[in-house]
Design a binder for these strands. Structure first.
Lengths: 341, 341
DNA sequence: GATTAGCACTCACCAACCAAGAGTGCTAAC
DNA sequence: GTTAGCACTCTTGGTTGGTGAGTGCTAATC
């Protein structure tokens, strides 16, 4: 619905604004070389674009600034994916060099590199527990009445809590129960643990029923607690270098948001595989209404294994970030496929 | 070396400044009621105090502000420990209600409450690994060539990494080695693991020597990696509400510092048991030269089990924070004594 | 001799004001 | 359809002058 020239001008304006962070005027566009029109012509087009809702004016006689709708159009139709240069590529892939750490460490490291490379904040969200299965469960006694409960999931994730040992449970009882639970419950999806317990293990452990249920409580407790550990942030303060965050109050609300893991998890909920761009108010949460969130969710056999997101101002280098995330998520997908073949 | 009146005036100035965050003038002190002198007298004393280095003037004809030396004198001789009120005490002790979680969770929760109560940033540093002993070591295989290595320490702390299994090591080999290592190394201080390995386990595992050394590498690797996990922050953004941090640049350097776990660990190194106050430039690190750090290190039998610190502006409510930390650290000491009796 | 009232002086802070510059919208010419 | 020209708007930065808080000093007072 936009003319070729309008698209060209919109593109120029967004590019300029992303670079300069200042409202861009008709003259500066006209002088860019790649747009062969005079300032006056551009002015007319800009007025039209504003009427159509793609641009905004902070005040009369300031330049124009892209609106959310403008950014959206830019991202959907205009943005040129920057190509990832040698240096960046090398850096980005350096995490693979640390051969064979856990999947988590790898992704977290990747997220860190990404935040350095982009100067925005990167967020990594680990796989949802209900997609993973139980690998191993164990109790390590610390002294007579306390023990550490440890759970290992199929993705190599480890969770633990300290629990108190009921006084009426002997060491050998405990060992036996843990053994049986392991034999029966290994490979069971985490969310089905409880129901499986009753259907499968029921009769065999009936004499330990009470204890056993206790154990499952512990198990699910550990899992629930671990929920929060899925979020990993990197470069939190990078965003402070952006001029749109020179106001401490804005900074505070943003940082407060980032500290609230549940909120972040909600933000990342239900993302389809692949790259997703959420611009400004397209984000649910008010605190990031002047931010954009670009996410890459990678999955294997339809099972999501995590999401890496980049949070920056709406005036974000979309082209660069998208292409970086694209490369990275494809790399990770390959890596994971090999890992969990 | 200060006269009674000078002490009184210094005390009044520091108190006022802590409340208002603004240079305090002679008149406002004179009108406080508890100091029965006229503004002129106070002015003279203030001039003297300035000459002695206890006060500073931002510029001529502004009020006075305490210097580092002034704060130091205040903390050492003048400060009245605020008494902890019922409500605070209840809140502060609520972590105990979560009966018998791990020591770590308890302290971390306490640190969180503390940051809420004070509106400063609280930092918790877990016990040094070389004071703790190995409780349990385990490998959980994930697939043919990777496994999760898990370590449990005597304090109930759990560390883990994913490692690759050498192709020439069979499952049963692995199990055997792990078993022997556990039997021999449980109870050994973490730092002595390697030397103990050779002296004690040497002959018994000579046929597995190579593998065994590999295992120890894994073990120490896990530990080194875990070093960073000892730091726990809470209320990071609280400090942003303080007027001295209305400048985003300062905020950034401070937050950057807080993200660097090694630096924080250095900051907390070699603290004696009990409460310690470091004011402004008394702190090594430049980024917190206008902050004060109050720490409480609690130990049992001379073995440090962690430190809780409060980081705030130099203009901090010393009395309140010190008494809160005092109560808390004593509580924790009791709790831990029961725990690790 | 210590204390205090009085006074001149110093700055930071604020508001008003002004000029410059950037950008716009509109009109008329190309 | 495009562009040059022009009047108009509005931010920005600098200057100026007034105000108030606070000081240092001196002289009077207790």
């Amino acid at each position: 619905m936009l003319t070729e020239r309008q698209r060209m001008i919109l593109n120029a304006i967004v590019d300029d604004y992303i670079r300069s962070a200042e409202p861009v005027g008709s003259r500066s566009i006209s002088k860019r070389g790649d747009v062969g029109y005079s300032a006056a012509t551009i002015r007319n087009e800009m007025a039209d674009l504003e009427e159509l809702g793609f641009l905004e004016q902070p005040h009369t006689s300031a330049g124009r600034v892209p609106s959310i709708k403008g950014y959206r159009y830019y991202v959907d139709h205009l943005v040129k994916l920057g190509d990832v240069n040698e240096h960046e590529l090398k850096l980005l892939r350096s995490y693979i060099a640390e051969k064979m750490r856990g999947m988590e460490q790898v992704t977290q490291h990747a997220a860190m590199i990404l935040s350095n490379l982009t100067n925005y904040t990167s967020i990594f969200l680990g796989p949802e527990t209900f997609n993973t299965t139980l690998k191993h469960f164990q109790l390590v006694p610390l002294n007579e009445d306390t023990a550490v409960a440890i759970i290992v999931t199929s993705t190599g994730h480890v969770e633990n809590t300290t629990v108190s040992i009921p006084s009426d449970m002997s060491m050998s009882d405990m060992e036996r129960i843990v053994n049986i639970l392991n034999a029966k419950l290994a490979g069971v999806p985490l969310v089905q643990l409880r129901s499986k317990l009753f259907s499968e293990v029921g009769e065999e452990l009936s004499r330990y029923a009470a204890h056993c249920e206790r154990m499952i409580d512990v198990l699910t407790g550990v899992l629930k607690e671990g929920e929060g550990n899925r979020v990993f942030l990197s470069g939190t303060t990078n965003i402070l270098t952006q001029p749109e965050f020179k106001d401490v109050d804005k900074v505070k609300t943003l940082l407060d948001l980032l500290e609230e893991t549940p909120t972040i998890m909600k933000l990342f909920a239900d993302l389809p595989a692949g790259i997703q761009v959420r611009i400004g108010t397209e984000n649910e949460h008010e605190a990031i209404n002047n931010c954009s969130l670009i996410t890459a969710t990678f999955s294997i056999d339809g099972q999501s294994l995590g999401t890496i997101g980049i949070l920056g101002p709406t005036r974000m280098e979309y082209g660069k970030v998208i292409s970086l995330l694209d490369v990275l998520s494809k790399d990770l997908a390959v890596l994971m496929a090999r890992w969990y073949k």
